[in-house]
Design a binder for these strands. Structure first.
Lengths: 137, 137
DNA sequence: AAGGCTCTTTAGAATGATTTTAAACTAGAT
DNA sequence: ATCTAGTTTAAAATCATTCTAAAGAGCCTT
């Protein structure tokens, strides 16, 4: 199976029509490497790859991939959106000084006790962000 | 001590010059009630109180109060900033459907094990957000 | 392989929260 | 009362993201 066909199939399974743009972005983001991207950094990657995708489509695609569970949105500040290509259950260190996000392995944080969700609700996800700063002395 | 003097003192202790606007906002936000506000909802409160503070100052003040530790910024989405008047260590339920944020009592979530911070770094804060959704059946 | 229907992409305009600006103002020290 | 640095103001600017209307492309049916 060609790589292109592989990603097209992946998109179909996710309920997304495999357009040229979505396949190209999937090839960049869904190749198994674990990293964090922004609309901006992704656009750079696309350009570097000698391709062009309009800004609106980059945003749409990131949102659609996230909704489809192919990406995960990480909340650390309100400046712009961050997406994690690792959708496995894991948490993050965040260093505000350098706007640096680092994955914490799955077993690095253990939640011994979760509160019950409010009546009529269920837990969808648990996000843990550990804010860190460089030590002074 | 008049209420005004009380809040002025509180601001001085936090390293902020107690201006008319900051004292007014402190009186609204730092009275001990635990709640979540946005720049917008705060502006409404100010108006309801028969006062006026310019938009820029509302934003500046929220940022300054946060930096001074009088408020806490809560990260749940990238649409606008949320501030918590409760600065004690606690976590949140977040229901995206209604953009509803609910405090979890301090002992509701227990982190049994924290990972060590990366070399040369120390942990500044641990934020836990439990995303919830209403149950279908 | 052509037609058609719907979904998608595009460039550019629009939106909206937040920040910046430059001038007017004020808290607090002298 | 006076001075100065910090603050407030209204308005403009910024910037990530979304929206728009028209052009394009999957893909199903002939």
């Amino acid at each position: 199976m060609t790589p292109k066909a592989h990603f097209a199939e992946k998109l179909r399974l996710a309920g997304l029509r495999p357009t040229r743009q979505r396949v190209a972005i999937a090839a960049l983001l869904l190749d198994g490497r674990h990293r964090h991207v922004t609309a901006d950094s992704l656009t750079e990657e696309i350009t570097t790859a000698g391709l062009h995708v309009s800004g609106g489509t980059v945003y749409n695609t990131l949102n659609q991939f996230t909704e489809a569970g192919l990406l995960r949105r990480v909340m650390v500040h309100n400046d712009y959106s961050l997406f994690d290509t690792n959708t496995d259950h894991h948490h993050h260190f965040y260093e505000a000084e350098n706007d640096q996000l680092v994955d914490i392995p799955h077993d690095g944080v253990i939640l011994a006790q979760l509160p019950a969700a409010p009546d009529g609700h269920e837990i969808k996800a648990v996000d843990v962000v550990i804010h860190i700063q460089s030590k002074n002395p």
